[in-house]
Every structure is written in structure tokens, then in C-alpha cells.
Simulated scan of single mutants.
Amino acid sequence: MQFLHAAESAILTLRAGEGEGNDRLALQRAFSAVLLEGPSEVARAARKMVDALRADLSWDDLESARAGFVEAARVALQKAGES
């Protein structure tokens, strides 16, 4: 959840052209937590989102990366609930 919040803050900062200087730092911290805590599918989706933000891709590409992360997280949570 922290990663999604940090990523959305970074997207809004890019879109508005302004924002807090710590948005990227918060994103990096949240991304590191996702990498450490897994699962791997969620970490891969988070990496795609971070890469999209760093590459200054289009808003459609950023939204696609965000949707991919959300879906990977939902699937992981569903699997965890079934265990």
C-alpha cells in the first residue's frame, strides 16, 4: 500500500510539474520494501512502475504500469487469503 501511495504521489508530481522533493525518496523506500517483502510478481510489477516513472513515459504508460502493479498485488493478496 505504501508503494502505491508513493508512486501515485510521484505521478502527480510529474503531472503538475511541482511537488515535494521527498516524493522520489518515499518512492524508493517503498520500492525497496516491496523488493524485500515480495512476492516476486508484485516486485516485478513495482519495478515496471518505477522504470516507467524514471523514463518519463507517457501518462498512458504510467497508468498501465500502475494498473499492472495493482493487479499483481490483488492476485498476491488473494493467493495469501486462500492459504
Rank of each mutant, 00 (worst) to 15 (best):
A45K: 06
D23G: 02
G21Q: 05
V42Y: 06
G21R: 02
L62G: 10
S40R: 03
D23M: 03
L12R: 12
A55G: 14
K48V: 00
Q28W: 07
E37Y: 10
F31L: 01
R15Y: 03
L14G: 15
N22F: 01
I11S: 05
E20N: 01
Q28K: 10
M49T: 03
R66N: 05
L25S: 07
R29L: 15
K48M: 08
L57K: 04
E18D: 10
R15A: 05
L36Q: 12
D56L: 00
N22Q: 09
L14E: 14
A43C: 03
L36N: 12
A26M: 15
G21T: 01
E41P: 06
A30M: 06
R54L: 13
A33S: 11
R15T: 13
L35C: 12
D56H: 01
A55R: 11
E18R: 10
D23P: 00
M49D: 03
E63C: 06
T13A: 15
L12F: 06
L12I: 07
A45I: 02
W59K: 04
V50S: 09
E41Q: 13
G38F: 01
L35N: 12
A46H: 03
L57Y: 11
S58H: 09
L35P: 03
W59M: 12
L36H: 06
A55D: 11
S9Q: 11
N22P: 00
G19D: 01
A33Q: 15
R44P: 01
G17H: 11
R54F: 14
L36C: 05
E41K: 13
G21K: 04
W59Q: 11
